[in-house]
């Protein structure tokens, strides 16, 4: 590594430090939740390393407890992961000159927070040839913190008394994760509609209620976006 590469790597890592306060409790909660959903410690460690997508993991675990079919769990995780498709589209021009291995590594390690920091700092056209090192530095800090926190949850979670209802912390962390996604009125309406439908559909077979609620939410969001753009056009 050249000095410039190390310097970019370090800058990225330092930018991730303030974000640790969010990812550490979330990782511990995910670790506890995986084990209490019935995964063995080995499977939980495997999920943490292989999946590395906290929101999708927390979305699937209640379905695992409810013995939902595999395809419902896959579909639910996919819906939650759709935001990564946006990130991927935004990041593609930044990384297009990198090798196959680099692009695979940076894809695996992409997390919401570093994506936001990175896109705020660099433009795709920036001449800086080391911006991927910055992305890697920040992402590695988040990855390490997430894996360590998950390990703590997996192996020390059993020490926490059941009466504390730590599994409820999983729902609370989803509330915190949801907030930055509610960026305009249409998406707020989409979320409210999905929440309403999820209550009506909670008893539906195979746990497809969540998917139905999501589809209804997206439909409402698109309708609201279309209405408000028509109004702006008139005004």
């Amino acid at each position: 590594m050249t000095r410039d590469q190390i310097s970019s790597l370090r800058d990225g890592a330092l930018a991730a430090v303030p974000l640790l306060i969010g990812i550490v409790p979330w990782g511990i909660v995910a670790g506890v939740a995986m084990v209490s959903a019935g995964l063995t410690k080995g499977q939980a460690v495997g999920m943490s390393l292989i999946v590395f997508a906290g929101t999708a993991q927390l979305a699937v675990l209640p379905l695992l407890i409810a013995k939902a079919p595999l395809w419902v769990m896959y579909a639910t995780a996919l819906v939650v992961n759709l935001r990564y498709v946006i990130y991927s589209a935004v990041l593609a021009p930044y990384f297009e000159r990198l090798s196959w291995a680099w692009r695979a590594l940076l894809s695996y390690i992409t997390v919401d927070q570093i994506f936001a920091v990175f896109v705020g700092k660099y433009q795709p056209s920036d001449a800086d040839p080391h911006k991927h090192w910055y992305f890697l530095g920040g992402s590695l800090v988040m990855w390490s913190a997430w894996q360590t926190a998950s390990l703590v949850g997996i192996f020390a979670g059993a020490l926490i008394p059941h009466e504390w209802s730590l599994e409820f912390a999983a729902a609370l962390s989803l509330i915190a994760i949801l907030m930055p996604l509610l960026f305009d009125r249409a998406v707020v309406c989409a979320a409210l509609a999905a929440g309403g439908v999820s209550l009506a559909a909670a008893e539906w077979p195979l746990n497809v209620g969540l998917l139905a609620a999501t589809a209804a939410g997206v439909a409402v969001g698109l309708a609201v976006a279309r209405l408000s753009s028509t109004n702006e056009g008139r005004g």
Binding site: L82, L174, I177, L178, V187, G209, L210, T214, V218
Partner: peptide, 11 residues
């Protein structure tokens, strides 16, 4: 953009 927010709310 809407689907993840809707899905998380529905969870």
């Amino acid at each position: 953009r809407y689907a993840p927010a809707a899905a998380i709310m529905a969870i």
